[in-house]
Simulated assay, not measured.
Amino acid sequence: MDILETAAYDRRQRRNMSCALLFYLLPFFLSAALYFYLRTPDSPSSIIGAGVKSAPALLLAAVVVSWNGGQSLLGVAGGLIFSAVGDACLVWSDLFIHGMGAFAMAHLMYSLTFLSSRYSEKSTPSWKLYLSLIFFIVGAAFYMYIYPSLKKAPNSDLIVPGVAVYTFLISLMGTLAIRTGHTPTVLGSLSFIVSDVALSLQLFKVIPNLEHGNSIVMVTYYLAQLLIAVGDVKAEANKNEFAKWKRS
């Protein structure tokens, strides 16, 4: 009976946590909805537009800090803040390099977090190692595919090496996310990659702009950040549950 009662208690705790987390995420959902409501194809670049676009990532950072504490500013919460900076920069086309640099820092912080003890497994299955190798090969192939278009872009002397570094960092983030085995984290990293692929193909004129191209980019992007944030909260919760189990 004790075991059954403990299992039932754990299920109630997880259910209560999910409900509380959903409540905390309501501002994120409202801010994302506001962005799509206000955004139009001919929207001018403005500080207000930058604020509306970056608000969802900042609100997710606040959720992660409120659940995991200030140390998360050096992890996923910090990555979300850098992402918000990148969101604001990309509102103005002449700040693209700055935005890409901010997102590169976000991927680096995510990667370092995914290597922490809260995520890491005792051993990495061989299939994950093969999948990581495939990730980097696909990333390199995609870079070579868009390389001719990068050469034609303004400031190509910065764009070409910058995109190469960025491609490496997002590929690294994706491989380390898969290594964690956390479903929200894995799906979040994959959604982030889909968003960046869709953005780069259109931004660098590899393909014509899609009719709903911006919506595809932003929906997958906001979804990615949401899943990565939720994955970080749950990873911390799992660590605390494991610590309690060891002490009992």
Score class of each variant (00 low, 15 high):
Gly78Met: 05
Tyr166Met: 01
Arg39Ser: 09
Leu115His: 15
Glu121Pro: 08
Gly99Glu: 06
Leu59Trp: 06
Ile137His: 01
Pro154Ser: 13
Ala88Thr: 01
Thr124Asp: 15
Ser66Lys: 08
Ser43Ala: 09
Gly51Trp: 04
Ala102Ser: 11
Leu38Val: 08
Ala102Arg: 07
Leu95Pro: 10
Ile97Asn: 11
Val91Ser: 04
Ala88Gln: 10
Tyr24Ala: 13
Pro154Asp: 12
Phe135Asp: 11
Gln71Leu: 12
Phe135Leu: 14
Ser83Lys: 02
Pro41Glu: 10
Ser126Gly: 09
Leu25Met: 13
Leu73Lys: 01
Tyr147Lys: 07
Tyr119Cys: 14
Phe96Cys: 02
Ser117Phe: 07
Gly99Lys: 01
Asp87Met: 07
Leu34Ser: 00
Ala32Trp: 03
Ser66Glu: 06
Gln71Phe: 14
Ala141Ile: 11
Leu108Arg: 06
Ser93Thr: 08
Tyr166Asp: 08
Lys53Ile: 05
Gly51Ala: 01
Val65Pro: 04
Leu30His: 07
Asn68Asp: 10
Lys152Trp: 02
Phe28Gly: 00
Leu95Arg: 14
Ala61Leu: 07
Ala164Trp: 03
Ile47Asp: 14
Ala57Tyr: 10
Ala104Pro: 03
Met144Glu: 13
Lys128Ile: 07
Leu129Phe: 12
Gln71Ser: 10
Lys151Val: 15
Phe135Ser: 07
Ala106Asp: 09
Val76Ile: 14
Trp127Tyr: 15
Met109Pro: 06
Pro41Ala: 07
Leu25Trp: 08
Gly70Tyr: 15
Ser123Asn: 13
Lys122Asn: 06
Ala32Pro: 04
Val65Ala: 03
Asn155Val: 14
Val64Lys: 00
Leu80Lys: 01
Asp157Thr: 12
Tyr37Glu: 03
Gly86Met: 05
Leu58His: 07
Val64Met: 00
Lys122Asp: 06
Val65Gly: 09
Thr167Ile: 11
Ala164Asp: 06
Ala106Lys: 08
Gly51Thr: 01
Ala61Gly: 01
Asp42Ser: 10
Ile81Ala: 03
Gly86Leu: 03
Gly79Ser: 08
Leu95Met: 15
Asp87Leu: 07
Tyr35Val: 01
Phe96Arg: 05
Glu121Tyr: 03
Ser66Cys: 10
Ile47Ser: 05
Glu121Ile: 11
Ala102Gly: 06
His98Tyr: 13
Val160Cys: 04
Ser120Gly: 04
Val165Thr: 04
Ile137Ala: 12
Met100Leu: 13
Asp94Thr: 14
Ser45Asp: 15
Ala104Cys: 12
Ala55His: 11
Tyr143Ser: 12
Ser156Glu: 12
Pro27Val: 10
Lys151Pro: 13
Leu115Phe: 12
His107Met: 12
Gly51Tyr: 02
Val52Ile: 12
Asn68Gly: 13
Tyr37Gln: 07
Tyr143Arg: 00
Leu58Phe: 07
Phe36Ile: 05
Leu34Gln: 03
Leu80Cys: 02
Tyr145Asp: 09
Met109Asn: 03
Leu26Thr: 09
Gly86Thr: 01
Trp92Arg: 13
Ser117His: 14
Ala104Tyr: 11
Gly69Pro: 05
Met144Ile: 11
Leu58Asn: 01
Ser123Thr: 07
Gly86Ser: 06
Ile159Phe: 03
Ser111Asn: 02
Pro41Cys: 09
Ala32Asp: 00
Gly99Thr: 04
Ser126Leu: 08
Ser120Gln: 09
Ala153Tyr: 04
Tyr166Trp: 08
Leu30Lys: 10
Trp127Ser: 11
Lys151Ala: 13
Ser126Trp: 15
Ser117Trp: 10
Ala61Ile: 00
Pro56Cys: 11
